[in-house]
């Protein structure tokens, strides 16, 4: 057992004693009841379970929670699907997913949302030429499986968020 402390969506949790090989996915879903983060394959192959880990240096990356022990998140600051909207205000990305009918069953949505959010933040920090946008979106999202949508509307939604603020994301 290890005492785990971490910050989720800005709220500190812990220390909480957890079994050392308890997965982060089970920690979120079974211990905390935060089931917005999904379980799809348990093998980091569908990426529906990713959360955002915010690095103290300011960069962020997604991590699949199903293949990592919860204790490896000790001290981490993470964001989950439950934390994107603030004070009832959806983010531009959330609005775009909804407006585009990006998802159908929605089970992969949390993963796509987190991954695309990290992409937006990466583009904001290091804008790219417009011509490279579609490939950048593909590189970011290709690990994420969706069985319903055929992906088209997810990619269009992310692209539209970027193109709505070209000065912010593009060179």
């Amino acid at each position: 057992m290890t005492a785990l402390s971490l910050t989720i969506n800005g709220t500190p949790f812990g220390p909480i004693e957890v079994r050392d090989d308890l997965s982060m996915n089970d920690f979120l879903r079974e211990v905390l009841g935060m089931t917005g983060t999904k379980f799809g394959c348990g093998a980091a192959q569908c990426l529906s379970c990713v959360v955002i880990v915010d690095d103290p240096a300011g960069s962020s990356a997604t991590r699949p929670t199903c293949v990592m022990p919860a204790v490896s998140f000790n001290g981490a600051h993470i964001r989950t699907v439950e934390g994107h909207a603030r004070a009832g205000q959806l983010t531009a990305l959330q609005k775009a997913f909804v407006a585009h009918y990006a998802f159908q069953c929605g089970y992969c949505t949390a993963g796509f949302l987190n991954e695309a959010q990290v992409l937006l933040e990466r583009l904001e920090a290091a804008p790219i030429p417009r011509a490279g946008l579609e490939q950048a979106i593909l590189d970011a999202l290709d690990g994420h499986l969706c069985r319903c949508s055929g992906y088209v509307r997810y990619h269009e939604a992310v692209r539209d968020v970027v193109l709505a603020e070209p000065a912010r994301y593009l060179l």
Partner: peptide, 13 residues
Amino acid sequence: ACHQAANYDPARM
């Protein structure tokens, strides 16, 4: 992003 410092056997990672 997935491969951490050690194997995580419950997920065969």
